[in-house]
Simulated assay, not measured.
Amino acid sequence: MSLNLPATFTYEKKGRIALMTINRPDAYNAFTREMLVGMDAAFDDFNADPDLWVAVITGAGNKAFCTGMDIKDALPAIAAGDQMGYDDPAKRPFQNIFKPIIAAVNGFCIAGGLEFLQGMDIRIASEHAQFGLGEVKWGVIPAGGSHIRLPQQIPWAVAMELLLTGQNIDAKRAYDIGLVNKVVPADKVLEEAMAWAEKICENGPLAVRTAKEIAVRALNNEPKFVLEKSIAPRVFNSEDAKEGPRAFAEKRKPNFTGR
């Protein structure tokens, strides 16, 4: 079946493994709406294909895994108060995918890129990878589940550091706090991720999927995601949420007013 994906998001089937690549390296693999639609279509196909057992997702080049939404694509929507989120307030990236997802992170994994990462199961990072949620620096918030998932996955104080300061952490610290499973040289990231995928494929696929489903469902995150979605508009509908992205696009310091 042809999915008619954009060239900026590729999907390959390699035996039992689905390899997906965010393919916009000149823009630090920032997402456009077209790419998000393509990613959703690829994961729907992966989820429905009984011959595919594990997904590996990476970013083209060595500068970035993903840096979230392209600000030029997102700015008009943010200015109109759109959170750029899912229509279903209880849905977040990959939460209904119970087949394992492995991330091969080579470079920046920030903003929406880190939000995607939080929905993945195994994370392999390059030595020069950087992780962060810089949204507050621009008057908005990472409303793609980070307020719920991040404190579940790493220590509270570090989660708050990322959410409240907007500063990045490096790969070593990400490994030390348990955000990633392994750090390897840049030229070994995809190879290592594929090796983990092959290792998982040696196990019973029904057992693997059931183990993940139980773990995910036990978190009972859907009501928490609804809470995030219900409170976030106070930020996205503010003047600061218009000023921050505008300042980013104009490469200047934002003038926040708290309104």
Rank of each mutant, 00 (worst) to 15 (best):
V158Y: 05
I102C: 01
A207L: 11
L227G: 11
K72Q: 14
R92C: 08
F43L: 15
N220Q: 13
K63C: 01
G166R: 04
A207V: 13
L5V: 01
I110R: 00
E192N: 05
A30W: 05
A207C: 09
A48P: 01
A7D: 14
R149N: 11
K242I: 15
W156A: 10
D176F: 07
K172Y: 02
S230Q: 15
P25G: 06
G132N: 01
G68N: 01
A41K: 12
A7S: 15
C66V: 03
G85F: 00
P155T: 04
M120R: 06
A48M: 08
Q83A: 11
S126G: 14
A211T: 09
R24V: 00
H147W: 03
A218V: 07
E34T: 11
L190I: 15
P151K: 08
F236R: 09
G85M: 04
T8P: 00
L117V: 01
F236D: 12
F108Y: 04
T21I: 12
M160V: 02
V158L: 06
V183T: 06
T257E: 15
A174T: 02
D45L: 09
P155A: 07
D87I: 07
W156L: 14
R92K: 09
V216Q: 13
N168P: 02
K99C: 03
E228T: 04
R259G: 08
V180L: 03
A42W: 02
R33P: 05
E135M: 08
I177L: 10
N203P: 01
I102R: 01
N221G: 15
P50F: 08
R246A: 15
L162I: 04
F248I: 08
I141K: 06
G145P: 09
V140Y: 11
V216C: 13
R173A: 07
S230L: 13
N181V: 00
G139A: 02
F94M: 06
L3P: 00
N203R: 11
A159N: 02
R234Y: 12
D45K: 06
N96S: 12
R209Q: 15
D187K: 08
R149Q: 13
A241M: 13
A18D: 06
S146W: 12
F94A: 03
S2N: 14
L206E: 14
M1L: 14
V140T: 13
F65T: 03
R149C: 14
R246V: 15
E192R: 07
I78Y: 00
P89H: 05
K224N: 14
K188D: 12
